[in-house]
Write a protein that binds this DNA or RNA. Structure first.
Lengths: 166, 166
DNA sequence: CTATTGATGTTATACTATAACATAACATTG
DNA sequence: CAATGTTATGTTATAGTATAACATCAATAG
Protein backbone atom coordinates (compact mmCIF):
# COMPACT_ATOMS: atom_id res chain seq x y z
CA UNK A 1 0.00 0.00 0.00
CA UNK A 2 1.60 3.18 -1.23
CA UNK A 3 5.09 1.82 -0.88
CA UNK A 4 6.48 4.69 -2.86
CA UNK A 5 6.08 7.05 0.04
CA UNK A 6 9.31 8.76 0.95
CA UNK A 7 9.76 10.75 4.07
CA UNK A 8 12.01 13.66 4.39
CA UNK A 9 12.26 17.03 6.07
CA UNK A 10 12.16 17.81 9.69
CA UNK A 11 10.76 14.73 11.39
CA UNK A 12 13.84 12.87 10.20
CA UNK A 13 16.46 15.54 10.73
CA UNK A 14 18.27 15.44 14.04
CA UNK A 15 19.40 18.67 15.64
CA UNK A 16 22.98 17.58 15.14
CA UNK A 17 22.52 17.31 11.40
CA UNK A 18 20.98 20.68 11.09
CA UNK A 19 23.99 22.70 9.99
CA UNK A 20 24.80 20.06 7.47
CA UNK A 21 21.23 19.95 6.28
CA UNK A 22 21.23 23.72 5.61
CA UNK A 23 24.59 23.60 3.88
CA UNK A 24 23.48 20.72 1.74
CA UNK A 25 20.28 22.46 0.71
CA UNK A 26 22.22 25.58 -0.26
CA UNK A 27 24.76 23.60 -2.23
CA UNK A 28 22.04 21.80 -4.13
CA UNK A 29 20.30 25.08 -4.83
CA UNK A 30 23.51 26.59 -6.17
CA UNK A 31 24.01 23.66 -8.45
CA UNK A 32 20.45 23.58 -9.75
CA UNK A 33 20.35 27.29 -10.43
CA UNK A 34 23.66 27.12 -12.25
CA UNK A 35 22.42 24.26 -14.39
CA UNK A 36 19.27 26.16 -15.21
CA UNK A 37 21.01 29.43 -15.95
CA UNK A 38 19.06 31.37 -13.32
CA UNK A 39 20.59 33.60 -10.71
CA UNK A 40 20.66 32.58 -7.10
CA UNK A 41 21.60 36.06 -5.93
CA UNK A 42 22.90 36.81 -2.47
CA UNK A 43 19.47 37.94 -1.37
CA UNK A 44 17.73 34.85 -2.67
CA UNK A 45 20.36 32.65 -1.19
CA UNK A 46 20.00 34.37 2.14
CA UNK A 47 16.23 33.90 2.13
CA UNK A 48 16.65 30.24 1.28
CA UNK A 49 19.16 29.90 4.10
CA UNK A 50 16.72 31.52 6.51
CA UNK A 51 13.92 29.22 5.41
CA UNK A 52 16.11 26.22 6.09
CA UNK A 53 17.47 27.63 9.34
CA UNK A 54 14.03 27.91 10.80
CA UNK A 55 13.51 24.35 9.81
CA UNK A 56 9.77 24.47 10.17
CA UNK A 57 7.05 26.32 8.27
CA UNK A 58 7.92 30.00 8.59
CA UNK A 59 5.89 33.08 7.70
CA UNK A 60 7.04 35.72 5.24
CA UNK A 61 7.07 38.41 7.92
CA UNK A 62 9.15 36.25 10.23
CA UNK A 63 11.66 35.91 7.42
CA UNK A 64 11.44 39.63 6.87
CA UNK A 65 12.41 40.35 10.49
CA UNK A 66 15.35 38.00 10.18
CA UNK A 67 16.40 39.52 6.87
CA UNK A 68 16.51 43.00 8.32
CA UNK A 69 19.59 42.14 10.33
CA UNK A 70 21.46 41.88 7.01
CA UNK A 71 20.34 45.14 5.47
CA UNK A 72 17.24 46.97 4.33
CA UNK A 73 14.22 44.82 3.61
CA UNK A 74 10.53 45.41 3.01
CA UNK A 75 7.76 42.91 2.30
CA UNK A 76 8.35 42.81 -1.47
CA UNK A 77 11.97 41.94 -0.82
CA UNK A 78 11.07 38.67 0.83
CA UNK A 79 8.03 37.89 -1.30
CA UNK A 80 10.01 38.31 -4.49
CA UNK A 81 12.76 36.06 -3.26
CA UNK A 82 10.18 33.48 -2.18
CA UNK A 83 8.49 33.67 -5.58
CA UNK A 84 11.77 32.92 -7.27
CA UNK A 85 12.53 30.06 -4.91
CA UNK A 86 9.09 28.57 -5.42
CA UNK A 87 9.41 28.81 -9.18
CA UNK A 88 12.68 26.94 -8.95
CA UNK A 89 11.08 24.32 -6.71
CA UNK A 90 13.39 25.19 -3.82
CA UNK A 91 10.68 26.11 -1.37
CA UNK A 92 7.03 25.23 -0.98
CA UNK A 93 4.21 27.40 0.25
CA UNK A 94 1.75 25.90 2.70
CA UNK A 95 -1.68 27.31 1.96
CA UNK A 96 -3.21 26.25 5.25
CA UNK A 97 -0.47 27.97 7.27
CA UNK A 98 0.45 30.93 5.09
CA UNK A 99 3.99 29.75 5.53
CA UNK A 100 6.99 28.48 3.64
CA UNK A 101 9.30 25.49 3.94
CA UNK A 102 12.41 24.36 2.16
CA UNK A 103 11.84 21.63 -0.39
CA UNK A 104 13.44 18.36 0.62
CA UNK A 105 14.18 17.03 -2.84
CA UNK A 106 14.35 19.90 -5.29
CA UNK A 107 16.41 17.94 -7.81
CA UNK A 108 13.35 16.24 -9.27
CA UNK A 109 9.94 17.33 -10.44
CA UNK A 110 7.66 15.87 -7.88
CA UNK A 111 4.29 16.06 -6.31
CA UNK A 112 4.28 16.86 -2.64
CA UNK A 113 2.13 16.13 0.35
CA UNK A 114 2.74 17.83 3.65
CA UNK A 115 2.43 16.35 7.11
CA UNK A 116 2.00 19.05 9.72
CA UNK A 117 2.37 18.06 13.35
CA UNK A 118 -0.07 20.06 15.45
CA UNK A 119 2.00 19.44 18.57
CA UNK A 120 5.62 20.20 17.66
CA UNK A 121 4.70 22.30 14.62
CA UNK A 122 7.28 20.50 12.55
CA UNK A 123 6.59 19.36 9.05
CA UNK A 124 7.52 16.46 6.80
CA UNK A 125 7.25 16.42 3.06
CA UNK A 126 6.13 13.30 1.25
CA UNK A 127 6.59 12.68 -2.44
CA UNK A 128 4.17 9.85 -2.83
CA UNK A 129 3.47 9.48 -6.52
CA UNK A 130 1.01 6.70 -5.84
CA UNK A 131 -1.06 9.02 -3.71
CA UNK A 132 -0.74 11.80 -6.22
CA UNK A 133 -1.99 9.47 -8.93
CA UNK A 134 -4.89 8.45 -6.71
CA UNK A 135 -5.84 12.09 -6.28
CA UNK A 136 -5.73 12.68 -10.02
CA UNK A 137 -7.71 9.49 -10.62
CA UNK A 138 -10.39 10.53 -8.17
CA UNK A 139 -10.77 13.86 -9.93
CA UNK A 140 -10.94 12.08 -13.27
CA UNK A 141 -13.94 10.03 -12.15
CA UNK A 142 -15.97 13.21 -12.44
CA UNK A 143 -14.28 14.40 -15.61
CA UNK A 144 -11.92 16.78 -13.89
CA UNK A 145 -8.40 17.16 -15.20
CA UNK A 146 -6.09 17.74 -12.24
CA UNK A 147 -3.13 20.05 -12.79
CA UNK A 148 -2.03 21.10 -9.31
CA UNK A 149 -2.65 19.43 -5.99
CA UNK A 150 -2.53 20.82 -2.49
CA UNK A 151 -2.45 18.05 0.06
CA UNK A 152 -1.84 19.22 3.61
CA UNK A 153 -2.39 16.83 6.47
CA UNK A 154 -2.58 17.87 10.10
CA UNK A 155 -2.04 15.36 12.87
CA UNK A 156 0.65 13.94 15.12
CA UNK A 157 4.13 12.91 14.10
CA UNK A 158 5.52 9.74 15.58
CA UNK A 159 7.64 11.26 18.34
CA UNK A 160 4.71 13.39 19.48
CA UNK A 161 2.35 10.46 19.28
CA UNK A 162 4.60 8.50 21.63
CA UNK A 163 4.67 11.34 24.09
CA UNK A 164 0.88 11.31 24.28
CA UNK A 165 -1.69 13.94 23.63
CA UNK A 166 -0.07 16.51 25.96
CA UNK B 1 -10.40 2.53 -8.76
CA UNK B 2 -11.89 4.89 -6.23
CA UNK B 3 -15.43 4.04 -7.21
CA UNK B 4 -16.78 5.71 -4.12
CA UNK B 5 -16.17 9.15 -5.53
CA UNK B 6 -19.29 11.26 -5.52
CA UNK B 7 -19.58 14.50 -7.33
CA UNK B 8 -21.66 17.34 -6.20
CA UNK B 9 -21.72 21.12 -6.11
CA UNK B 10 -21.47 23.51 -8.92
CA UNK B 11 -20.21 21.54 -11.90
CA UNK B 12 -23.42 19.52 -11.72
CA UNK B 13 -25.86 22.29 -10.90
CA UNK B 14 -27.59 23.86 -13.86
CA UNK B 15 -28.51 27.52 -13.77
CA UNK B 16 -32.17 26.54 -13.78
CA UNK B 17 -31.77 24.51 -10.61
CA UNK B 18 -30.04 27.24 -8.77
CA UNK B 19 -32.95 28.71 -6.84
CA UNK B 20 -33.99 25.23 -5.85
CA UNK B 21 -30.45 24.37 -4.86
CA UNK B 22 -30.25 27.38 -2.52
CA UNK B 23 -33.64 26.68 -1.00
CA UNK B 24 -32.76 23.07 -0.49
CA UNK B 25 -29.49 23.92 1.23
CA UNK B 26 -31.26 26.33 3.56
CA UNK B 27 -33.97 23.83 4.41
CA UNK B 28 -31.39 21.17 5.20
CA UNK B 29 -29.49 23.63 7.36
CA UNK B 30 -32.64 24.54 9.28
CA UNK B 31 -33.36 20.91 9.92
CA UNK B 32 -29.84 20.01 10.99
CA UNK B 33 -29.54 22.97 13.34
CA UNK B 34 -32.91 22.16 14.89
CA UNK B 35 -31.86 18.54 15.42
CA UNK B 36 -28.64 19.66 17.01
CA UNK B 37 -30.21 22.30 19.21
CA UNK B 38 -28.09 25.12 17.80
CA UNK B 39 -29.44 28.39 16.55
CA UNK B 40 -29.47 29.21 12.87
CA UNK B 41 -30.17 32.88 13.49
CA UNK B 42 -31.35 35.24 10.79
CA UNK B 43 -27.83 36.55 10.32
CA UNK B 44 -26.31 33.10 10.04
CA UNK B 45 -29.05 32.01 7.70
CA UNK B 46 -28.49 35.09 5.57
CA UNK B 47 -24.76 34.42 5.32
CA UNK B 48 -25.41 30.82 4.35
CA UNK B 49 -27.87 32.01 1.73
CA UNK B 50 -25.29 34.41 0.34
CA UNK B 51 -22.65 31.70 0.21
CA UNK B 52 -24.99 29.50 -1.78
CA UNK B 53 -26.21 32.36 -3.97
CA UNK B 54 -22.71 33.07 -5.15
CA UNK B 55 -22.41 29.43 -5.95
CA UNK B 56 -18.68 29.47 -6.24
CA UNK B 57 -15.90 30.05 -3.73
CA UNK B 58 -16.54 33.49 -2.27
CA UNK B 59 -14.37 35.67 -0.05
CA UNK B 60 -15.42 36.92 3.37
CA UNK B 61 -15.24 40.54 2.26
CA UNK B 62 -17.39 39.84 -0.77
CA UNK B 63 -19.97 38.39 1.57
CA UNK B 64 -19.56 41.40 3.80
CA UNK B 65 -20.39 43.78 0.97
CA UNK B 66 -23.47 41.76 0.14
CA UNK B 67 -24.50 41.61 3.79
CA UNK B 68 -24.36 45.37 4.15
CA UNK B 69 -27.45 45.73 1.99
CA UNK B 70 -29.39 44.06 4.81
CA UNK B 71 -28.12 46.13 7.70
CA UNK B 72 -24.94 47.03 9.52
CA UNK B 73 -22.08 44.61 9.14
CA UNK B 74 -18.38 44.61 9.92
CA UNK B 75 -15.76 41.91 9.35
CA UNK B 76 -16.44 40.10 12.63
CA UNK B 77 -20.09 39.87 11.66
CA UNK B 78 -19.35 37.72 8.68
CA UNK B 79 -16.41 35.83 10.14
CA UNK B 80 -18.43 34.82 13.18
CA UNK B 81 -21.29 33.59 11.07
CA UNK B 82 -18.85 31.67 8.89
CA UNK B 83 -17.22 30.12 11.96
CA UNK B 84 -20.59 28.89 13.12
CA UNK B 85 -21.45 27.51 9.70
CA UNK B 86 -18.11 25.76 9.43
CA UNK B 87 -18.49 24.21 12.87
CA UNK B 88 -21.86 22.87 11.80
CA UNK B 89 -20.37 21.51 8.59
CA UNK B 90 -22.55 23.78 6.47
CA UNK B 91 -19.74 25.58 4.71
CA UNK B 92 -16.13 24.75 3.93
CA UNK B 93 -13.17 27.07 3.84
CA UNK B 94 -10.74 26.73 0.96
CA UNK B 95 -7.27 27.42 2.24
CA UNK B 96 -5.75 27.93 -1.17
CA UNK B 97 -8.31 30.57 -2.12
CA UNK B 98 -9.10 32.22 1.22
CA UNK B 99 -12.71 31.62 0.29
CA UNK B 100 -15.83 29.79 1.38
CA UNK B 101 -18.27 27.43 -0.28
CA UNK B 102 -21.50 25.79 0.78
CA UNK B 103 -21.14 22.14 1.75
CA UNK B 104 -22.88 19.84 -0.67
CA UNK B 105 -23.76 17.07 1.79
CA UNK B 106 -23.84 18.48 5.29
CA UNK B 107 -26.04 15.68 6.61
CA UNK B 108 -23.11 13.32 7.08
CA UNK B 109 -19.68 13.52 8.59
CA UNK B 110 -17.41 13.29 5.62
CA UNK B 111 -14.01 13.98 4.30
CA UNK B 112 -13.88 16.41 1.44
CA UNK B 113 -11.74 17.06 -1.56
CA UNK B 114 -12.17 20.14 -3.67
CA UNK B 115 -11.89 20.46 -7.42
CA UNK B 116 -11.26 24.04 -8.44
CA UNK B 117 -11.62 24.90 -12.11
CA UNK B 118 -9.04 27.50 -13.03
CA UNK B 119 -11.06 28.56 -16.06
CA UNK B 120 -14.64 29.02 -14.88
CA UNK B 121 -13.68 29.38 -11.19
CA UNK B 122 -16.40 26.97 -10.20
CA UNK B 123 -15.84 24.26 -7.67
CA UNK B 124 -16.97 20.72 -7.04
CA UNK B 125 -16.76 18.89 -3.78
CA UNK B 126 -15.87 15.24 -3.65
CA UNK B 127 -16.42 12.98 -0.68
CA UNK B 128 -14.18 10.15 -1.70
CA UNK B 129 -13.56 8.04 1.39
CA UNK B 130 -11.25 5.77 -0.56
CA UNK B 131 -9.03 8.69 -1.38
CA UNK B 132 -9.22 9.97 2.16
CA UNK B 133 -8.14 6.57 3.43
CA UNK B 134 -5.28 6.54 0.94
CA UNK B 135 -4.10 9.89 2.26
CA UNK B 136 -4.23 8.65 5.84
CA UNK B 137 -2.44 5.44 4.84
CA UNK B 138 0.32 7.35 3.12
CA UNK B 139 0.88 9.42 6.23
CA UNK B 140 0.89 6.27 8.34
CA UNK B 141 3.79 4.81 6.34
CA UNK B 142 6.01 7.37 8.05
CA UNK B 143 4.36 7.02 11.45
CA UNK B 144 2.16 10.06 11.08
CA UNK B 145 -1.35 9.98 12.47
CA UNK B 146 -3.59 12.03 10.18
CA UNK B 147 -6.42 13.96 11.80
CA UNK B 148 -7.41 16.60 9.25
CA UNK B 149 -6.85 16.66 5.52
CA UNK B 150 -6.86 19.54 3.12
CA UNK B 151 -7.04 18.34 -0.45
CA UNK B 152 -7.54 21.07 -3.03
CA UNK B 153 -7.06 20.29 -6.68
CA UNK B 154 -6.75 22.90 -9.40
CA UNK B 155 -7.39 22.03 -13.02
CA UNK B 156 -10.11 22.01 -15.65
CA UNK B 157 -13.67 20.84 -15.18
CA UNK B 158 -15.22 18.82 -17.94
CA UNK B 159 -17.18 21.59 -19.65
CA UNK B 160 -14.12 23.82 -19.70
CA UNK B 161 -11.96 21.01 -20.92
CA UNK B 162 -14.28 20.52 -23.89
CA UNK B 163 -14.13 24.18 -24.71
CA UNK B 164 -10.37 24.00 -24.92
CA UNK B 165 -7.64 25.86 -23.15
CA UNK B 166 -9.09 29.32 -23.87
C1' DC C 1 30.42 51.93 -23.57
C1' DT C 2 25.59 52.00 -23.55
C1' DA C 3 21.34 49.73 -24.18
C1' DT C 4 18.65 46.33 -22.40
C1' DT C 5 17.14 43.33 -19.14
C1' DG C 6 16.62 41.66 -14.69
C1' DA C 7 16.96 42.46 -9.61
C1' DT C 8 16.30 45.28 -5.69
C1' DG C 9 14.76 49.45 -3.01
C1' DT C 10 10.91 52.12 -1.47
C1' DT C 11 6.36 53.75 -0.56
C1' DA C 12 1.86 52.96 -0.44
C1' DT C 13 -2.05 50.14 -0.28
C1' DA C 14 -5.11 46.05 -0.77
C1' DC C 15 -6.77 42.01 1.21
C1' DT C 16 -7.66 38.65 5.07
C1' DA C 17 -8.61 37.90 9.84
C1' DT C 18 -9.00 38.60 14.87
C1' DA C 19 -8.81 41.10 19.59
C1' DA C 20 -11.31 43.47 22.81
C1' DC C 21 -15.04 45.38 24.72
C1' DA C 22 -20.04 47.13 24.60
C1' DT C 23 -24.75 46.06 23.83
C1' DA C 24 -28.70 43.32 22.73
C1' DA C 25 -31.44 39.07 22.49
C1' DC C 26 -32.72 34.94 24.45
C1' DA C 27 -33.27 31.38 28.11
C1' DT C 28 -33.76 29.87 32.84
C1' DT C 29 -35.35 29.92 37.18
C1' DG C 30 -36.93 31.78 41.51
C1' DC D 1 -42.44 39.02 35.95
C1' DA D 2 -37.75 40.16 37.52
C1' DA D 3 -33.15 38.81 38.11
C1' DT D 4 -29.57 36.38 36.18
C1' DG D 5 -26.61 33.94 33.13
C1' DT D 6 -25.55 32.87 28.45
C1' DT D 7 -25.19 33.42 23.64
C1' DA D 8 -25.20 36.47 19.71
C1' DT D 9 -24.30 40.78 17.62
C1' DG D 10 -22.44 45.62 17.14
C1' DT D 11 -18.39 48.45 16.99
C1' DT D 12 -13.74 50.04 16.90
C1' DA D 13 -9.30 49.09 16.37
C1' DT D 14 -5.53 46.47 14.87
C1' DA D 15 -2.86 42.37 13.44
C1' DG D 16 -1.27 39.61 9.71
C1' DT D 17 -0.59 38.50 4.70
C1' DA D 18 0.38 40.01 0.06
C1' DT D 19 0.89 42.99 -4.03
C1' DA D 20 0.94 47.40 -7.06
C1' DA D 21 3.62 50.90 -8.80
C1' DC D 22 7.50 53.24 -9.65
C1' DA D 23 12.52 54.41 -8.80
C1' DT D 24 17.15 52.81 -8.79
C1' DC D 25 20.84 49.70 -9.23
C1' DA D 26 23.49 45.67 -11.24
C1' DA D 27 24.64 42.40 -14.79
C1' DT D 28 24.98 41.12 -19.43
C1' DA D 29 24.87 41.51 -24.45
C1' DG D 30 25.75 43.86 -28.46
Amino acid sequence: MLETATQSASFACKRDDHEHCIASALATAERLCAERGVRLTRLRRKVLELVWSNHRPVGAYELLEQLKSCGPAAPPTVYRALDFLQTQGLVHRLASLNAFIGCSHPQAEHTAQFLICRRCRNLAELADDGLSNAVAASARTVGFQAEEQMVEIVGLCEPCRRKGEG
